[in-house]
Design a protein around this nucleic acid. Structure first.
Lengths: 372, 372
DNA sequence: AGTTCTGATGTAATCGTTTACATGGCCGCA
DNA sequence: TGCGGCCATGTAAACGATTACATCAGAACT
């Protein structure tokens, strides 16, 4: 019945606390009412300096820590935030998470993580989770609202708590969006490739129906157009942002009738997987084919060759989302949309195209001398 | 005062709920007492089938979700678990996290994450967190107990809640440990290198005072000894498991008077960073120098060359830790220590040493033909 | 038939806060 | 001096569940 019995000896400072320290104990010791103790903590300016000092002293003496359950029960606030994401083990998200955690921590909020893992069952569970009032707000990285019933796509979740969409905008929902301009970034990369002389630029896509993917694909086409290149559907290879899909795309690419001189992968994972395949197929990057990525994950800089990519400020994205949510939670006005800057990071995996049909692989080295 | 006002229209199923559905509402609808409703949920066998059916129906009709704060206040259980880790953005941890989350979810527990980020301030905060009873238990990935006061190393945290140490054993604490045999694994890799003919094997360490590091270092020395090789302190390069430290170690390595023929890096991140540096220094892997890693992260297989490493079953480690903690929380007996198997994954970054002093780099290719 | 036990249910106390409302003292203004 | 207002504080009613204890009906045994 009472498992904590044996360990309930006097704790630190010689103050023996029979059990848990309650606000009453503090009140008694400070010779004030519980209301004053509560106020001294929540809104110090509403308590006289002397009373406050006594309360603080009593708290220090007893080691009092407010009981969150009781606090939450009464005040309807949990100081907890739910973060929903599709895949916790993905490098891309974990860096963002860190940004989120930082800000939340500063503001005194805890972070509960839900790895959706593609399971609708989990979605339902976490919809209930929010409904039960276990969290004050949520940050959604999964690109859609969960708990959407019959109405399918169109029906936003009515949780009644503040929500923020991070990275993947949620079109039908009227909630703040924190994101980058995926379209502009993709367009820029495409134009970068084109400006180096590439005329045949393949594209490795993200998962279908993904908002990110739609935007990036639009950017790709825009970039082609802006560079006066024709869009060729045959050069669009399916992917899903994973290393494995990059490897697959590499195989598909190598099997293409006329191999393009450049590939734009919409994630670094795919780019790295793809380079790997290309390399083992005997193609060299960037001499035979240029490869570009997206995200600038840690490994992009140490890939071989180092990956040219688009940097997303992941930590900052997380921080911004958390900041907006906190504003919302605390009733402050907050921007409806934040777009953070991306950056084109030029490394070694992209180079001007070289005429590889004319010579066997070995002699290419001489051609490579050309640039000055 | 009441922000939810405007959105409080009838919800689903046409059942209009003025505000939140309470257990009383369910009780009234099912024509039983609140106690029966509570029991129907917590211990169905203690309620008659008819009553249970009525309760369940009423719950379905009203969409009742128990209020966690109230439940927690009364029952002293939160159904929340704290996971403490040193760096959330690290690939290695995030895969483990996923394993943890899976198991916790199945058992109905939520996961709160604390990214320690090397900040003692945060440790204090989370010590208070557990003390306040916000979680029922914790999984520690950080290798020590927080909240250790004056006594320094030796004083285990007295939180009064079940704890489990994952990966990094906590020597002074009497809590279950889930881990791999780091020492045996490191020894095995060292012997693997030696068995290929390497006589001079460098070691890139983890952070000092880290338990993992200590074990792996012991394994390294053991492996050397078992292979009849002498330990040379000059071949131990400092690292901290990060890519950056691997890059640094690569520079130090290249600067060494007599370059070893093999390097054992105690993390894949370091191995990949190190290979990168080596490559740009003009050394080839594995022809000039073999590189081995530890962990088998996703990128190990697609590194160039593909990394020979030790596979840690990360997801399983997370699952096992969660399972043990759940046992503990539910009063079941649980193992005091679980050691999961590692696996030596042989890829391309390790090869027998080749005599590189006799010939200039170019002609090495002929030597490389040797293997049949 | 009387007693005891068991199983299903209800009643109401309890968990530890926050906070609406009441109180009382003090200041300043007329 | 009297009165409105403000400030600091106290009192006590929530918040919404769990659960110890009481109750009661019926079964089973002597």
């Amino acid at each position: 019945m009472d498992e904590r019995g044996p360990s309930s000896r006097p704790d630190e400072d010689g103050v023996s606390l029979g059990r848990t320290v309650r606000i009453q104990d503090v009140a008694k010791l400070a010779d004030v009412s519980t209301a004053t103790v509560s106020r001294a903590l929540a809104s110090p300016e509403r308590v006289s300096p002397e009373a406050r000092a006594r309360v603080l002293e009593a708290i220090a003496k007893t080691g009092y820590v407010p009981n969150p359950a009781a606090r939450s029960l009464r005040s309807q606030k949990t100081y907890m935030v739910l973060v929903v994401l599709p895949d916790l083990s993905n490098t891309f998200f974990s860096k963002i998470l860190r940004g989120i955690e930082e800000r939340l921590f500063e503001a005194g909020y805890g972070m509960i993580i839900s790895d959706l893992d593609g399971s609708p069952e989990k979605e339902a569970h976490f919809a209930a989770f929010t409904a039960a009032g276990r969290v004050d707000g949520a940050i959604l990285l999964n690109g859609h609202l969960f708990g959407q019933s019959r109405d399918g796509e169109g029906m936003p979740m009515k949780t009644g708590i503040p929500l923020v969409a991070l990275c993947e905008a949620i079109p039908s929902a009227d909630i703040p969006q924190i994101e980058i301009d995926n379209r502009a970034a993709a367009s820029r990369m495409t134009q970068h490739l084109a400006s180096l002389g590439h005329r045949s630029i393949a594209y490795v896509s993200g998962p279908p129906n993904n908002i990110l993917e739609r935007e990036r694909f639009l950017g790709y086409r825009e970039g082609l157009e802006a560079s006066g290149l024709r869009f060729d559907p045959a050069l669009v290879l399916p992917g899903d942002y994973t290393i494995a899909s990059g490897i697959m795309a590499g195989q598909n690419l190598a099997a293409l009738a006329t191999c393009p001189t450049a590939v734009f992968c919409t994630s670094d994972e795919m780019a790295i997987g793809l380079m790997r395949t290309l390399l083992s197929e005997g193609l060299r990057v960037p001499e035979d084919i240029s490869v570009a990525g997206f995200d600038d994950i840690e490994f992009a800089a140490v890939a071989e060759p180092a990956l040219t990519t688009i940097r997303q400020p992941r930590r900052e994205l997380g921080q911004a989302a958390a900041a907006v949510l906190i504003d919302l939670l605390q009733g402050r006005p907050s921007p409806k949309r934040i777009r953070l800057e991306t950056e084109l990071v030029v490394r070694d995996s992209v180079a001007p195209p070289q005429n590889r049909e004319k010579a066997p692989a070995k002699s290419i080295r001489t051609i490579a001398m050309k640039p000055t």
